[in-house]
Each structure stands twice: as C-alpha cells, then as structure tokens.
Design a protein around this nucleic acid. Structure first.
Length: 250
DNA sequence: AGCATTGTTTCACA
DNA sequence: TTGTGAAACAATGC
C-alpha cells in the first residue's frame, strides 16, 4: 500500500513510540537490514530514545537522543509500521524495536522489500510532493521529454508519488500520462500541483491511496467515473497505467 | 500454472 | 545528458 499517504500514517505511528527507551532491536532479517549485519542496528540503538519522526516522500527517518544515530525506515511495496501490538504467531515483522516499557515498534511486511537502516543517505530524494513550492514544482516537474507520469514517479524530482497516486492525480487533473512533461504551461503545472496536493490530503485523511475516487475503477475494463468511457490500460514509465481516453486527452 | 504487483536500485543501451 | 526498458529483489494474491 505504501505511497506518501501511507508513509505519513506510518510516521504518525512512529510518533507514538517517541520518548521511550530502546532495549534492543530485532534486526535478524539481513535483507531488510542490509547492509548491516545481524546485531549492528540493535547495538547502535540499545539504550537510546527516539526523539523525532520525519518523512520526505516515502522515506522515513527517526532521530535519537544525544549523539545517537538516525534510524531510516522505508515501507517498500507492502510494509507498515505497527506500534504496541502483540506480534502474532505468523506476523510478518521484518524489523522491530523493543522498549523498556514492554512496548514495541514493528516494521510489518508480507513481502521483504521494506528497509531499516542506520544513518540513511537520502541525499538523492527530491522535495516532498505535498510540500513542494509552486516555483520548485514548476522547475522540477515541468521539464524534460519524459512522459509526465514518469516525471511524477521519479523520487529524485519530487518525492512521494507512487503508481496509484500518479494515475489518480493525472485523471483528476485531466492530463494524459504520456503528455510530455516539459510541454506543460505554468498554469498547467500550477493546476497539477493543486490537484496533487488535494489528492494527497484526501488520501491521508481517508486512509490511503486506495481510497482515491479513480482507484476503484482502475482495473481491466473499468469505466471512467466521470464520463463512463472504458479506461485505457498500458505501460508508462515502466508501470501499468490506467487513464480515460476522453477526459485525459493531453 | 502463470502473471501481476501500491517500490527502489542498477545497468545496458539509445 | 537524458531517457527508456528490463532485471533483480521477495513473496503474496488472483
């Protein structure tokens, strides 16, 4: 599920764990915790306290007290953050922090594409899609010959837009996913940014990108919620893409 | 059985 | 430089 709205909800979960002393970390999954070896994250965090939870796009990091390191977290394709829940027998907890008070913060992921890293390098990540200024959005998104959707999905351009949010936003803005990014006018870019911010805000409020008004119809043979036309399915930017041939002409 | 998948990174290639 | 496509990663669901 994780796109920007899910990552923000995860950040808010992490906030519930601030101020509690860490006893140990379960970092046994060497793939999720790469490049760290077993025990490395645990020894880096034991005795520390989480102080602030941050997010840019889908990338999360948590500060620790004093000279402690940051803990970087990413939800990958299917991860979520669960605080103070009993680990079920067959829970897919790929990483966890155990607190002195008996509580627990778990990175839950049926797949294993999520990440936990000490002092993550997020220098390649662009400005957050929900906070980027109008001027910055214009100059970063409104350039190049790539399809507009590919531009939106590029986390180095702006951070946080995933496949579903991209389709939802482009549909709501009436723009074709294949539209050349650099061909949009300033007014067009401003409109796109407004729509994107609205969709992000709605998705955070309603519980995730899957609540988008377009997403329920986003399947083979689905009909456009606005005009009823059969949706177009193809591949843009390497990802399966649905759009309305009538309402997203260009 | 086979294919698709809400993400990221890397690499070959145009 | 810029962009594209594919592969790899892991595991589940249809």
């Amino acid at each position: 599920m994780p796109e920007l709205p899910e990552a923000e909800r995860a950040r808010r979960q992490i906030e519930r764990a601030l101020g509690r002393r860490i006893v140990a970390a379960d970092d046994a999954d060497a793939y999720v915790c790469r490049p760290h070896g077993p025990g490395e994250i645990s020894s880096a965090l034991a005795g520390r306290t989480l102080t602030r939870a941050h997010r840019r796009g889908k990338f999360l990091w948590v500060e620790t007290d004093g000279e402690g390191p940051d803990l970087g977290l990413h939800l990958g394709m299917a991860g979520s953050i669960v605080v103070d829940a009993e680990p079920a027998p067959n829970s897919w907890d790929r990483f966890a922090l155990d607190f002195e008070d008996g509580g627990r913060l778990a990175l839950h992921d049926k797949r294993r594409l999520s990440r936990a890293v000490i002092d993550p390098d997020y220098s390649h990540v662009g400005p957050d899609a929900g906070e980027v200024s109008r001027a910055t959005f214009r100059e970063r998104v409104g350039r190049g010959t790539a399809p507009l959707k590919a531009r939106l999905l590029d986390q180095a351009v702006i951070a946080g837009v995933g496949n579903l949010l991209a389709d939802q936003t482009l549909w709501a803005a009436g723009l074709s996913p294949r539209r050349e990014a650099g061909s949009l006018s300033e007014a067009g870019l401003d409109h796109l940014r407004r729509v994107l911010r609205r969709e992000i805000r709605l998705a955070i409020k309603k519980g995730g990108v899957h609540t988008g008004s377009f997403i329920a119809s986003r399947k083979r043979g689905g009909a456009c919620p606005r005009c009823g036309a059969t949706l177009l399915r193809d591949t843009v930017g390497g990802r399966t893409t649905f759009s309305c041939p009538i309402d997203q002409p260009g």
